[in-house]
Design a binder for these strands. Structure first.
Lengths: 199, 199
DNA sequence: TTGCAACTTGACCGACCGGTCATATTAGCT
DNA sequence: AGCTAATATGACCGGTCGGTCAAGTTGCAA
């Protein structure tokens, strides 16, 4: 059957955009089914529960992320510290594009979900945490490269990377609250000044 | 009638803790009424809608915040830059205390709500944005004081304050995702290194 | 060509959602 | 004491929620 994988994918696709631009609780199974042109029964054939769907969405989105703008921004041909400029740029353009189309900044799917479900579902929380850990790792490797290249002073790259990730998520949070992607432009450059000394 | 104000307050109190530690969508009017020992009809006597309740909760919480740990941390008797240490400390202890009692880090009510409702309700978004603007102002004043006292080099205090706020919110986001208040301790000190140069 | 598993269909479920309402009850003023 | 307006009561509303299920239909392997 050729449509099988397709059906599953259509469900994920419909859910992905909706969870991203609204919230987990606000998007119902029925709405997802309708927009994916799938019946309720089919939905529950592929996903035991709504929660299992959001897990799939997180996984796929993390993949998109890793192979998408994260991969582009962290291009190893670029001087290490320059990659952070690309990261901020990419975030800016993504949020701006979404706002121009939908009218609102969706923010970061992972950040959104993390704040929504972390206190209520430890498994989802762990999933989201793993995504952040992966992002942190990319940042850390870049910092280590920068240190090796002599473009920055040695530092606690692990904690510094986490701090930079926190800053990025915080920027996106404020940008979403103001519904204004320019926040990323105005404040983004400071990401390179964040550093935690090694002891 | 003596119980009148009391009833309204009981509703707000019950809602405040629940919205903070769960989410807006997840907490129903019925649950709030039950826990506040109030009937549905009474609830809608005081609040035209659930949304009006959350507005009241935001306002009261912002007040608690301003007169609570924000006021303490930004104590004018402290050297300006030291106040940021107190800010981080206060955030750390608050989150830790909540986790020890409830098992989970609730995060920042404003950050939580901002990511949950910003794309769906511009009025709530504006309310939350106003709270952030107030916090930013406090930070900015502190930075200006620090510059005046010569403890830091002159900088774009407005944007730097916003960047520091973003960082704080990002730290709380990661702490919540890891369910670990230590994130604030590990990474908090970097808040003082964030600066955006004036041009 | 038959058999079986993968998939689809759409009606159905109980629970809960935010919100309404007519009817008490109460408190404070005159 | 009597009136009025504020507050309280709890049954009730239509709609939606996540989820179930029995009965199809389809594609593929043997």
């Amino acid at each position: 059957m050729q449509t099988a994988i397709d059906t599953r994918q259509r469900i994920i696709d419909a859910a992905k955009t909706r969870f991203h631009s609204r919230s987990y609780a606000d998007v119902g199974v029925k709405e997802i089914c309708d927009s994916a042109d799938v019946q309720k029964g089919s939905f529950y054939h592929f996903f035991p529960s709504k929660r299992d769907l959001v897990v799939a969405v997180i996984e796929e989105f993390a993949q998109d992320w890793a192979t998408g703008f994260i991969a582009e921004a962290f291009d190893s041909r670029l001087p290490p510290m320059e990659r952070f400029d690309y990261l901020i740029d990419a975030a800016y353009f993504w949020q701006k594009a979404a706002r121009d189309i939908k009218g609102h900044i969706p923010g970061c799917l992972f950040g959104n979900l993390a704040l929504e479900v972390s206190t209520q579902d430890d498994i989802l929380r762990a999933k989201l945490n793993a995504v952040f850990t992966m992002a942190k790792k990319r940042i850390m490797e870049t910092l280590d490269e920068a240190v090796a290249a002599g473009s920055i002073e040695p530092l606690d790259s692990d904690n510094s990377a986490e701090a930079m990730l926190a800053y990025l998520e915080g920027l996106i949070l404020l940008a979403k609250t103001q519904n204004d992607p320019d926040v990323l432009y105005r404040l983004g450059k400071a990401i390179k000044s964040i550093r935690i000394e090694s002891d």
